[in-house]
């Protein structure tokens, strides 16, 4: 426990010690500054508790995988990498990470491909009621959440015979993510000067040519952002694969993580802790790199 950092001890450090006031106002001021001081202390204590609360689970996530005998209690590890070696021997663990990647990439390809086409057309052609459609779609995607639509989705996918297949999972995920993606990408495409396309057009380039030679390369940062964002969304999604996939072989890491700690009678902490870290690391890394580079953005932030 001694290792636990206490991040929110900082509020106390910003507390300025009461400076001696002129004598004539000393009494009143002393009272006020005492109250001020006490409230700062109370505030600091509350924030410290909150900080510790946020830190504790993370500390376990980071330390336990490197402990030769991890336990549920937070403790300074007896350093080792054996847990990871053990993880790589477990057939389910590695396969599930691969499955997550496959689901993420497949959804990303569909979402970026179709989303970019739709966003481009919507950005460049004035369809009557276009903005209405766009906002309608965004609204739809925030209303029809994974949970609210789980029953009809499950039933439809069953009827289509897509249960227990990646096709079903990818299409459902793509349907939920696409509206946001179209919205963001359209904004992005709107900001690309039209003279690029007009110029290409004057030299006789057709629409597909223009898209390939001019628009896609210029829109690359936006597309890359969307691609990463989509993979992160799919990577952590639990509900959709949980209800649409049956066979353990197909399960992505999000579901396997859950089965690891619910279904195995005596939880193998060495395996689970290493798996949890391995599974979390990519999104954590991506997130903090993206956050560093581009700042934190919400973009209607639908987190399904």
């Amino acid at each position: 426990m001694t290792s636990t950092p206490t991040p929110t001890s900082t509020p106390t450090s910003t507390t300025t010690p009461p400076v001696a006031p002129p004598p004539n106002v000393r009494k009143v001021a002393a009272n006020a500054s005492l109250r001020h001081f006490l409230s700062r202390v109370a505030f600091a204590i509350v924030m410290t508790i909150v900080g510790v609360l946020f830190a504790l689970p993370m500390v376990w996530l980071v330390l336990a995988p490197f402990d030769a005998t991890p336990s549920l209690t937070l403790s300074w590890p007896d350093w080792t990498l054996d847990n990871f070696a053990r993880l790589f021997e477990n057939p389910y663990a590695l396969r599930s990470i691969g499955n997550s990647l496959l689901l993420g990439v497949a959804t990303m390809v569909i979402v970026v491909g179709f989303g970019a086409l739709a966003a481009y057309a919507m950005s460049r052609i004035r369809i009557p009621g276009r903005d209405g459609i766009l906002y309608g779609l965004l609204l739809l995607s925030s209303i029809v959440t994974g949970t609210a639509a789980m029953v009809p989705t499950f039933q439809i996918i069953t009827q289509l015979g897509l249960i227990n297949s990646y096709t079903g999972v990818v299409l459902v995920l793509a349907g939920g993510i696409l509206p946001t993606v179209i919205f963001i990408l359209k904004d992005f495409m709107d900001s690309i000067p039209k003279s690029y396309e007009e110029s290409a057009r004057l030299y006789g380039a057709g629409p597909f040519r223009i898209l390939r030679d001019v628009v896609a390369p210029i829109a690359r940062p936006g597309l890359a952002f969307i691609a990463i964002w989509t993979i992160v969304q799919v990577w952590g999604n639990f509900l959709v694969p949980f209800i649409l996939l049956r066979s353990p072989d197909l399960q992505p890491a999000a579901v396997v993580m859950y089965t690891f700690y619910t279904e195995s009678g005596q939880a193998d902490l060495r395996l689970i802790s290493a798996f949890a870290l391995l599974f979390s690391a990519p999104v954590l890394i991506i997130y903090f790199v993206v956050n560093r580079r581009y700042g934190f953005r919400f973009h209607g932030g639908i987190k399904s």
Binding site: I110, F114, G115, L117, A118, Y120, A121, M122, R124, I125, R126, I127, L137, L140, S141, I143, V144, A149, P152, T153, I156, L171, V172, A174, G175, G176, L178, P179, I182, K194, E197, E198, R201, G206, P207, I210, L211, V215
Partner: peptide
Amino acid sequence: DDVAGLGKARAGIFVAPALIIIGLFLLFPA
């Protein structure tokens, strides 16, 4: 205001796949 010379028909083709997926797997379930 059709800068890329897309034309309505092609614009429709561009938008269709996304709208079909959204329609089938988001709107239709609702």
